[in-house]
Amino acid sequence: MKQFCIKLILGFANYFTRKDESVYDTFNLIVGRNPLILMFFFIVTTILNLFNYNPFYFLEGLEKLERLVILFLCYLIVLPLFILIFPTSEIKKVTLDESQLKYYYRLNAILLFSIVFLSMLLSLHKDGLIL
């Protein structure tokens, strides 16, 4: 599972890598971890929502800009956790060729969209908007 996640990180990092850089550059690997953070977020919020717990209670009544700043701070807190779970040293041990990197980028997109769709549809269903 961890190896699969590392391949997903590399696939997404490769999409944002320029010709003059390495996919293993720190900034690229940070970008590569972002889809996993989003997937984790949507899975957690869906579970909390299913148990009738509002995952966004701390954002209620705030202005859009305040919300964005708080969310960015939350992101900065979560990112180091993902760096600890998927350390750069372990990512560097994995090597993929160009076609594999493209495959894992597409897989990233499919997985993220599927999770977002399911999470949102569950939320809308729970609010009685659909089905």
């Binding site: 970008v31 977020f41 919020t45 209620e60 939320s123 809308l124 908007l129």
Partner: peptide, 29 residues
């Protein structure tokens, strides 16, 4: 442009979460 594209992706995470909050707050299509 290198920094802009990657920085934009970091802010993209925040934008997606904020859009999800909007949906939870006021469910609509």
């Amino acid at each position: 442009s290198k920094i802009a594209s990657k920085g934009g992706n970091l802010l993209g995470v925040v934008s997606v979460v904020d859009a999800a909050f909007d949906l939870y707050d006021k469910p609509s299509w």
